[in-house]
Nucleic acid binder design. Structure first.
Lengths: 116, 116
DNA sequence: ACAAATTTTCGTAAAAGTACGAAATATTTT
DNA sequence: AAAATATTTCGTACTTTTACGAAAATTTGT
């Protein structure tokens, strides 16, 4: 890292943080799984993946640190689920990055167009 | 990496690959810059960032490797721009991950709902 | 063509990420 | 309560990422 602690716009930092958490196929898989099933035990996830349980735990932790999931620890059961507020925030951030309107609409007003 | 080369669904691999490329604030910044300006010299980008030119070049390369940008090298000028087809693909992949319809619509049909 | 400026490549160093197995913790079942 | 299961933490090894400055390559201006 550079000398300054926050040299980038806050929105870029946030978007990058979520993107980083999404930057591994196992974590994408886990998120899709949780998005469908709403919640499940860690074991259910481990069964689906070709990696060791301890590694899954690690990925789960990274998703939790990034705020994309949360671990519910109600005494009898322990389950993970999507952190909906942050999931929505990430959705908005990515939507903003890629642009909400179709790309064609933008190119119409481009005056300084300079690549194909 | 594990023994098998492709143990994850192809769509998850693709999504993760794009997400990984987006997983650094400098790269988000660069992409936003290029999305606005359509194209520019590397120097224009370097000016905006608090990191060394060689590091920017590295980030530029990663974005290029991921397919999110392309470097046009027309003899007199050299410029970078968004790789539109792949940019659109990434947009679709993330849209698919986060769900196109509002999250409320899905929860209506949830029968095995088990988290808040 | 030559000099100045820009951009990339190279070499290096420090930090973070990925993965595993073993040990520790916690949870369920008998 | 004790045994069996399941989950996380710990320690380790290896790879990748991030960053810099110096050197090489490329491009622009005179």
């Amino acid at each position: 890292m550079s000398a300054k602690s926050k040299p980038y716009p806050a929105e870029d930092e946030k978007t990058a943080r979520y993107a980083k958490a999404l930057g591994h196929p196992a974590r994408i898989f886990i998120l899709r799984f949780l998005d469908k099933q709403c919640a499940c035990f860690a074991g259910n996830i481990v069964e689906q993946l070709p990696i060791a349980a301890s590694t899954v735990s690690q990925h789960l932790n990274e998703l939790k640190d990034a705020g994309l999931i949360q671990g519910e620890v109600n005494p009898p059961t322990i389950k993970y689920c999507i952190n909906r507020p942050n999931w929505e925030e990430a959705k908005v951030l990515f939507g903003d990055l890629f642009g909400h309107e179709p790309a064609a609409a933008k190119s119409a007003t481009d005056t300084e167009k300079c690549c194909l």
